[in-house]
Measured scan of single mutants.
Amino acid sequence: TKEGQWDCSACLVQNEGSSTKCAACQNPRKQ
């Protein structure tokens, strides 16, 4: 995982660090 990116806890899609919700399932980003 690149720095600043995060993996969705629900569907495991990798998202940009600037995103607050998963691009695939709209699950909110977990801190």
Rank of each mutant, 00 (worst) to 15 (best):
T1Y: 08
T1I: 12
T1M: 10
T1K: 14
T1G: 11
T1L: 08
T1N: 15
K2T: 03
K2A: 01
K2I: 05
K2R: 00
E3Y: 05
E3V: 01
E3D: 11
E3Q: 14
E3M: 08
E3N: 06
E3L: 02
E3R: 02
E3H: 02
G4H: 11
G4I: 14
G4L: 12
G4R: 05
G4V: 06
G4K: 11
G4S: 13
G4T: 15
Q5K: 13
Q5D: 03
Q5F: 02
Q5R: 09
Q5M: 14
Q5I: 05
Q5G: 05
Q5Y: 11
Q5V: 01
W6L: 07
W6S: 13
W6N: 15
W6I: 15
W6C: 01
W6Q: 14
W6V: 08
D7C: 10
D7N: 15
D7E: 14
D7P: 09
D7F: 01
C8K: 03
C8E: 08
S9I: 10
S9T: 12
S9F: 05
S9R: 05
S9C: 08
A10N: 06
A10R: 01
A10D: 07
A10T: 03
A10M: 00
A10E: 01
C11Q: 06
C11H: 06
C11F: 01
C11T: 02
C11Y: 00
C11R: 02
C11K: 04
C11E: 01
C11A: 01
L12R: 14
V13Y: 02
V13D: 13
V13Q: 15
V13A: 12
Q14F: 04
Q14I: 12
Q14V: 07
Q14Y: 10
Q14T: 14
Q14E: 03
Q14D: 09
Q14P: 06
Q14G: 13
Q14C: 10
N15I: 03
N15Y: 01
N15Q: 11
N15H: 07
N15A: 04
N15E: 07
N15T: 05
N15F: 00
E16P: 02
E16H: 06
E16Y: 02
E16L: 05
E16S: 09
G17R: 09
G17M: 13
G17P: 13
G17L: 14
G17D: 15
G17Y: 12
S18M: 11
S18D: 09
S18F: 07
S18T: 14
S18E: 05
S18C: 10
S19H: 09
S19P: 09
S19T: 11
S19M: 10
S19E: 12
S19K: 06
S19Y: 14
S19G: 10
T20L: 07
T20C: 01
T20Q: 07
T20N: 05
T20W: 03
T20G: 07
K21E: 09
K21I: 08
K21Q: 07
K21C: 04
K21L: 06
K21G: 04
K21P: 04
K21N: 07
K21S: 06
C22E: 02
C22G: 02
C22H: 05
C22F: 00
A23N: 05
A23V: 09
A23H: 08
A23Y: 03
A23M: 08
A23C: 04
A23W: 01
A23E: 15
A24C: 05
A24H: 10
A24D: 11
A24M: 02
A24V: 04
A24R: 10
C25T: 03
C25Y: 01
C25N: 05
Q26E: 15
Q26Y: 07
Q26A: 11
Q26M: 12
Q26S: 13
Q26L: 10
N27K: 13
N27L: 13
N27C: 09
N27Y: 07
N27E: 15
P28R: 09
P28M: 07
P28E: 15
P28C: 13
P28T: 12
P28Y: 11
P28W: 10
P28L: 11
R29W: 06
R29S: 11
R29L: 07
R29M: 15
R29H: 11
K30Y: 14
K30Q: 14
K30M: 15
K30V: 02
K30P: 09
K30A: 07
K30C: 02
K30G: 00
Q31R: 05
Q31N: 12
Q31D: 15
